[in-house]
Amino acid sequence: MLAALAAVPILIAIAVRVTRAGDGGGGPAFLDRIENNGLFVVFVALTVCVPLFLPLTVGVVAGDTIAGEASNGTLRYLLIAPAGRIRLLVVKYIGAAAFCLAATLVVCIAGALIGFALFPSGSVTILSGDTVSLANALGRSLLVALYVTVSLLGLSAIGLFVSTLTDVPVGAMAATIILSVASEVLGQLPQLDWLHPWLFSNYWLGFGDFLRDPISWSNFGTNAALQAGYLIVFGALAYGRFAAKDILS
């Protein structure tokens, strides 16, 4: 899955390099900036991955946490060891969170490498129109990766909870991914304005705030609090379900 994610920035970079379409103005944000600076491959790739590919892979990993063990018949062996069910849940969640970080970093690193290989590097023009040094821009990219990782923690917690509900991992994966798509669809409807701040996908594309001068931290804080809320609620729900579940396999 990580290889598939790494393929996204590589495909984007090669497509832009081969076609040299010029600035048509269409396509995802930052696409027309790639020719000036290879680092923008990272941001285009993230813009493309955040709404679909990253939730997809996170849904697969998080949905697999408990249900996967159950369907393999290994869950009861894990629980025979004197580790406790809470600890198993926590470790499984940490695993899913580590995947969020790894997935985001893979997109960023692959994007940066292919970008610098095919396009010029050097100082970077950020959204505010200011120009910053390459080192500064790389630091900002790391912050962007961190932001995207944090954004996915809520979805991971939902996946963990769904995974405790069933012994069929595919069902848990599909349910998690459907929830993430549903959240994004709801986020598109202006009639549901009041609901938007409560959707876990609401701040997913807020990583542009790190490309402003000065960096805007307000979305980062709100997003972190929102994701923490989802983590607490669905973590507790997962515990409620898992603590007294009959383990049959």
Binding site: G229, I232, V233, G235, A236, L237, Y239, G240, A243, A244
Partner: peptide, 16 residues
């Protein structure tokens, strides 16, 4: 007992 195990979840929702 069945309801008690959901208590932490309910508490978490109330707190959030």
């Amino acid at each position: 007992k069945v309801w008690l195990r959901w208590a932490p979840a309910a508490a978490a929702i109330v707190v959030v």
